[in-house]
Nucleic acid binder design. Structure first.
Lengths: 160, 160
DNA sequence: AACAAAACGTTACAATATAACAATCACTCA
DNA sequence: TGAGTGATTGTTATATTGTAACGTTTTGTT
């Protein structure tokens, strides 16, 4: 992981946002699906930090300066789209959403969620995927989706 | 796993409930915490099946035949207690609760959740725990809680 | 331009969870 | 044993998260 994308390292986050949006555009173009203005705004909001954000936080941001406040389905529909396209992940343990750090790639990400600062890193580990898969299949179980959420303390929050 | 506790095999589920309650009693006694009548009722409700149940389902059951309906905090407090004692797990991806199949033992369970019949098995796999732990520590991250929820199709629901 | 499908707006509501305070229970120790 | 204390439960109210349903607008296609 380059430092530019490493949430634990001081970095130019503007570049994270830029590259996330660019990748999203490319991906949607390739797949011939529409990254509409709304969807892009939602994705951009999500990428404002490396912390998962709640749907209603996004909603509040969208509403900023608008004449009429946006409504929940507006956000949830955009989130559904973004999740379908693998651009965003839902973190179930805290009901929040985070940008995918390597969209397009086939992957089962897993998440390191800091309990203190909330910064969340997405990692991959194909061997673990494989272990889980084979373990499940020992029980005759076929996995469709893997969800791994690890909470604890990140490197910056250890000593406090 | 003995067939008596294997959710995928036809078994005398009464024995599952019995043994879960007995273990809970023993454990609470050893720890000198109180498995009150209410907490036991909630645990018993949860153990009615090998499917995770929602808090409001439990609430509805508690309310059955009572003069005044039970209120949400009643159930959530009992659930908090049962989770603290490791007698119950929360399945975050579906907001539901399931009895722990091996309480007392230090463990990071992971869950195979059938999308079709909802039957959920809890497995252990110390090697995966270890891999995750060492992976996380490569990033300076200390894990407090591991949450692994795998959704898919169980052995009985594959061919339908 | 007419049409169909997709996306979005809007209203209403469902489902899940918690805060705050009052009442009751159960254990302890004088 | 019974007064005091902390734990547990009851109760009211409300916060938070998510969805159903239907109408309108936009987009892409013929």
């Amino acid at each position: 992981m380059s430092d530019e994308l490493n949430p634990y390292v001081n970095h130019n986050h503007g570049l994270c946002i830029q590259s996330a949006l660019r990748e999203a555009h490319d991906l949607c173009k390739r797949r011939n699906v529409r990254l509409t203005a709304l969807r892009e705004k939602v994705l951009e909001q999500i990428w404002q930090s490396h912390r998962p954000v709640g749907a209603y936080d996004i909603l509040a941001q969208l509403t900023q300066g608008e004449s009429r406040p946006a409504q929940p389905p507006t956000v949830y529909r955009a989130l559904d789209f973004l999740q379908e396209q693998g651009l965003v992940h839902r973190i179930a343990s805290i009901n929040a959403y985070i940008g995918c750090s390597h969209p397009g790639k086939q992957h089962n990400g897993y998440f390191l969620i800091c309990e203190r600062c909330k910064i969340t890193a997405e990692l991959e580990h194909p061997e673990i995927d494989q272990s889980l898969k084979s373990c499940a299949s020992d029980h005759g179980f076929t996995i469709n989706k893997t969800r791994i959420e690890l909470t604890g303390l990140c490197i910056n929050c250890q000593n406090t």
